[in-house]
Design a binder for these strands. Structure first.
Lengths: 207, 207, 207, 207
DNA sequence: CATGAATGAGGCTTCATTCAT
DNA sequence: GATGAATGAAGCCTCATTCAT
């Protein structure tokens, strides 16, 4: 018996998969769990995705794209000082993830998939590109600050960007591991020191 | 006595398990792979570990302990300026892991196990403790620099420590994801800015 | 709807299991044997029974119910003298089992399961109830004979019933152990003496 | 390191095996359990018995022999009336087993082994012989009673013997299944009726 | 198209048996 | 002879995938 034809059936499935993979991890997740979460039959998933593996990769691409769009939006805001925008980006990234920290487990799954999955190279490449993009964005911000004379210190903007991004990633990880750990003040302390080190006093723009 | 019991049999198995889990990931690893890697029969593993799950946790504990000891050794070196010691620690941590970057995939597995494993809480707790310890070590270093007047800036040492540790973690992650990415210069740029921000010019002690 | 669900699939499996368990015993029986006997795939069994253990218990319940129904039918026949009905019941029980003596091995498995199985208490309880029921039926027959004055002797009807039932059980056991042993004449001799002892001359109604 | 050479090592092992098999059943019993119960090493069992199967059969033979000897002793007592001796034998058999009812589970295992075991035919044959012997003993008793004129009724002594033995077996089974069931009064009621039927009033010799 | 009953490859685990000490 | 660490055959069970309805 055909239910109402969901025109976004594929997206529904991906969303359900995200929920299930987040909660139980890829290996422990069952196709039937995804089907239940999506409110459809088990077999139907296979009309849209050829395998569990493929569905997993689809959730990965979905989230990567979503995140990428968010980052672009953040970078598009071109108001204020370089230091201010840098700090604002740190805040935004952290807050965005803190709001759905429960999905962070999925990020860990994706990282792990770079070892585990038969598709590992596709995961790795996608991550490389995503990090490269993000580094470029953050790097441009830093470079702009140096070019404009706002930042006095000379430093490799790309390298610093990698480290900053890293600190955000890993503060979220610590928050995931320990619900009592709040990554925001840590990031603020860090960004303050960094801005100071770049040659300005930066007041983090409190969210 | 029967066939002489190899007193290091347990360690041999754990070592083999580390190699196999690193390469294929926990889920894809087969007990028989571990046995082959250890040069023993499949059943022998079960004389020492009650289940695959338990073996996995044993590799986790083994590596956590090892890493913990390394960190203590690093922290024990009490020569030079706070900035120098901080930078040296960054170098040491990165270099230690770069030397066995192939095992970093296992760290990703462990992170992921905090979602995936039935033992997830034990993994989380162990990570919390490890991070707490490491934060304390790094925090003490920063605090010492501030107390001695070497660092002029006032900052929450614990919060900054969390961010620094995070950047090391995540730079290694980026290196794992992209063999062309070298985390050392990124860390040096970062640490230089941080030290600058703390009120000193720090020349990283090159390894 | 998917492949039409055979509404009798469960019964088919139980029947196949009875055949296999009878022939090879529970421990030596393989799930794949049951599947083959049922003409289905190994995995299908697990759609209906969660474990081998559970399937075994299901065969037990199935046979106990079947036997219970047979006993009720026998007891429902209310024609003739008490002695006649008692002897008829002995005949009926023996003949019913002799017709499918090959399944008697399964009864032995069930008895043994009261020691062996993790479910041992459920087996024991079920047997206790079955014996209690059967004793009540036979006991009522004897009591009726005494009440009507047909049986002159005074005797504890329940106790005698237990012994009579026991003799039927165990004559079948001897028949199972020795194909040359015919339990019917033994039972007839026995029942004749018992009826005589109860105060009547009873001619067993030959089946 | 050799323990004190137990000259009856073999018997020790069999005794231990009886205990273990009684408690857990053959399939669930582990060779290491037997070894522990015997206070020896696992490998030592194999110095005396070529396999678990062989050990099981050895326990069977041991118990069959023991029981056979007991039966002979009972039969050897040639005092009193036929009815008295018959009733005494019933009592003796029941009491002997009630005293070690915990071992009755092993009898069930043996019965079941006539289906289960690769040695099933050897078990069956042994049981056939044992039952034949026992029937002969009891039959002789009945025949003597008829020959001496004590029993007036004509009945096939062998057939009746089979039924009587069966009732003892199965009353013990009921006692095994239900700790609240006392087989002694049941047997007494039964034997009283049987003796009556044979033409005498028999007072069971209370134990 | 949607479904879910059926399937069987494949893994973890057990444990009787072997054999070096 | 006695031992118990080592072994690997073998079985239960899971679950992604298929396909008849």
């Amino acid at each position: 018996m055909a239910r109402r034809a969901d025109p976004d059936r594929k997206k529904t499935i991906v969303t359900a998969a995200i929920a299930v993979f987040s909660r139980k991890g890829y290996a422990a997740a069952r196709m039937v769990d995804v089907a239940l979460a999506a409110g459809i039959g088990k077999g139907t998933i296979y009309q849209y995705f050829p395998s569990k593996e493929a569905l997993f990769f689809a959730t990965f691409e979905y989230l990567m794209t979503q995140t990428g769009v968010q980052m672009e939006n953040l970078a598009a805001e071109r108001t204020g000082s370089a230091a201010g925008r840098l700090s604002a980006m740190a805040e935004a990234v952290l807050i965005a993830w803190m709001d759905r920290l429960d999905a962070y487990g999925l990020v860990l799954e994706f990282w792990s998939a770079t070892t585990t999955s038969p598709q590992r190279m596709r995961f790795k490449t996608a991550f490389q590109n995503a990090y490269a993009d993000f580094r470029k964005t953050v790097s441009a911000l830093i470079q702009a600050g140096m070019d404009s004379g706002e930042f006095h210190s000379r430093v490799d903007a790309g390298m610093l960007a990698a480290a900053l991004i890293g600190s955000w990633d890993a503060l979220l990880l610590q928050a995931w591991l320990d619900p009592d750990f709040d990554p925001l003040p840590a990031s603020r302390s860090h960004m303050a020191v960094v801005c100071q080190g770049l040659g300005v006093s930066c007041k983090p723009s409190v969210a």
